[in-house]
Design a binder for these strands. Structure first.
Lengths: 179, 179
DNA sequence: GACCGTCCTGTACGGCCGTACAAAACGAGG
DNA sequence: CCTCGTTTTGTACGGCCGTACAGGACGGTC
């Protein structure tokens, strides 16, 4: 194993540990020292690989973010198809869905260029896509409820097989929005 | 206005500002200085009234927590009645529901005696109450989805009249759990 | 064996947090 | 008037955060 491979290996270990910790506690609640302790390094070593800390979130989120952008860029024949795709997306990236939907964008002021800046509006865009323009109050409530149902269902059941979660949540989300 | 009344008045103003800021950004993301700035005081003045910071969360949450404990202590003839009561509770306390359901209990380690310590298990207890003992994977997913739907629907629509939210979300939650 | 880039450590710094404490306003009551 | 408790301020401290920087260990290259 070359030194370069070793570097990539620890990089992966750090990413895996960070992904897990972020999913548990949220982005801001996890320090570099926490991640370092989880992989048996010092926080300086973690900072060496991911500098600044934002880079960790960026790399962890990147695949899911691309997927979400593709989702938002697609056309759907109706809310059922949209919810089906969104649920599939949420299940596919359930390890990081929490970061995408609230954690990072949660704070009020994210520095420009940070991942939070790009992510901030994801939830809002999903809502607009689902609720449509000028939604009625009832539709607004149902849209947020549907999105929340998927997110909560996905985050809290990481030990349930993905197919079960996806199928169940798709039905649930549709049921909410059509209730 | 006596000095004591004045003290209580500023106390209330601090509580109101804190409630608002916590609902927006979450508990950990709001500092005493933020709250102080919102009410035109220094952080030391805020600390004088609420010492330690936990006391702020405790006082803000207390009414909702009592209500929730009553809910958890009640008997219900079925999941519909339970969800109806839970939704009513969530709407009634929608200004602080975010703190109750995730924010404070979200971190992994809360010091013993802190509000987080008491609140930590609220979400889990609600889940157990809804899903029942030994739930199937599908029931687990649906239970979490229903709770998430109510929470999300309540938090994101604070400008919608409470009756509309309550009625809509009750139907939505039931639809999720029966989907 | 000398050189070099990669990987990691140790130390240190500035910033923000919650908190402690002394002192200054300030109105109330003797 | 003068004291007293309440409220607010100013200042300072320790702790944890992310970060910067210098140096050491290690393997690959010539």
């Amino acid at each position: 194993m070359t030194t370069l491979d070793q570097g990539n290996a620890t990089r992966s270990r750090i990413l895996a540990a960070a992904r897990e910790l972020f999913a548990e506690r949220g982005y801001a609640a996890v320090s570099l020292a926490d991640i370092a302790a989880a992989v048996g390094l010092t926080k300086t070593a973690v900072a060496y690989h991911f500098h600044p800390k934002d880079r960790l979130a960026t790399e962890i989120i990147a695949p899911a973010a691309d997927d979400l952008l593709a989702l938002l860029g697609s056309e759907f024949s109706g809310h059922r198809e949209f919810l089906r795709s969104f649920t599939a997306f949420a299940v596919r990236h359930r390890a990081v869905i929490r970061l995408l939907t609230e954690d990072i964008g949660g704070a009020d002021s994210a520095p420009p260029g940070s991942p939070g800046e790009a992510i901030r509006e994801f939830g809002r865009e999903l809502f607009l896509r689902l609720a449509g323009p000028d939604p009625s109050p009832g539709t607004r409530v149902r849209a947020w409820a549907a999105l929340g149902a998927v997110q909560s269902g996905v985050v809290k059941t990481t030990d349930v097989p993905a197919e079960v979660v996806e199928e169940t949540l798709t039905a649930a989300a549709v049921a909410v929005f059509e209730s």
